[in-house]
Design a protein around this nucleic acid. Structure first.
Lengths: 196, 196
DNA sequence: ACCTGAACACCGTTCAAGT
DNA sequence: ACCTGAACACCGTTCAAGT
């Protein structure tokens, strides 16, 4: 940090904007409310980000970078790939735990018709990161033939995102847990008791 | 119809509002653009709907009623429940085929923090209708124990909604087809070749 | 470098007035 | 019954001007 008073305005804008976007989407992210949270005026945000599109892209970029680091940490924490897969849905559960928020990528995916191209690009990178990680771990877990790993990875990613969306619409985390358990029972995810 | 000039203004508002909401969500639905599509002025909409919340609720109500009728038609068309389940994802595919639109319920689910309560209620009814139909057909197909049918129905609904969301964010219908096929391979949906 | 006042365009809503 | 122009309060966004 530059001084003793905590993170700078740019960083605080990024953090606050992420939280707002996860709850209300890109279109629901407005500079007056955001500025108020940060403690500056709306116009001041433009000193740090050239436009709303620029801010949105920065928020989405930071989001996939953080999510990528979290997945790597999961892998470092447990060398067992089946265990990693079992814990994967937990990364989506955390958003629901935090004021019933949605994955930034999911809420922005729903807005894709109204997203600036530079934001869309970062949202797609988020999906790419998730699928690449799942694909790698699925192969390590010997859950699929290596030729099918990416297809299965995409299926898991889409299904977990769907579970989060549905659970959020009911403000019901236990519904998310129930849906994940159903994915395990059906064989999409490795089983919760015996290794898949 | 009242006269020879086609559906009335109220009906045209409902149809146009549904199309806009499926592309841009409830928050992206505005009376000025909507009125222009219908060919009247924004203020005239208030002659047919008391408020935006009222219009949103009417749109969502009509949407689940239509979807319910479509599912019943599917069931009437084919008496084989496994065949019905196989064709279920097609009802979601149709929205993507129509200008890459999303299920109204999914896009509104993503907006759930900002939805008037009377709209939320109708969105949840949509999910209830889908789950009830799937549950009934799963039992008829003997794919699950009757005690688990609703849980499995919810899983299928969430996974298909997720597939639609992800495919739309890439504007890629073939990705939707691929995801559905993966759900079949993994056992979540009945297989595409042999009966499940 | 960092911030802001003031303006602009837009949106949901209302209402008196039209036919 | 059905529609509209005009207005109101409000909000997202921008930029020239401040320190």
């Amino acid at each position: 940090m530059k001084n003793g008073s905590g993170p700078g305005a740019k960083e605080r804008i990024l953090v606050a904007a992420t939280a707002i976007a996860q709850a209300h989407g890109y279109s629901g992210l407005n500079f007056r409310d955001l500025a108020e949270v940060v403690g500056i005026k709306a116009a001041s945000i433009y000193h740090h980000f050239a436009s709303k599109a620029d801010l949105g892209a920065a928020v989405a970029r930071r989001y996939w970078q953080d999510s990528s680091a979290a997945l790597d940490a999961l892998l470092a924490q447990s060398s067992d790939p089946v265990d990693c897969l079992r814990r994967y849905p937990g990364t989506f559960r955390k958003a629901l735990e935090s004021d019933n928020r949605l994955c930034l990528c999911s809420i922005m995916a729903a807005e894709s018709d109204d997203l600036p191209e530079i934001v869309t690009k970062e949202v797609q990178t988020f999906a790419d990161v998730q699928v690449a990680w799942l694909s790698k771990v699925l192969v390590a877990a010997a859950m699929v033939d290596s030729g099918n790993s990416e297809q299965r990875a995409r299926a898991i990613f889409a299904a977990v995102a769907g579970a989060q969306l549905i659970a959020r619409s009911r403000s019901d985390i236990s519904l998310f847990d129930e849906l994940i358990e159903s994915y395990r029972v059906s064989g999409l995810l490795p089983g919760s008791r015996l290794s898949g």
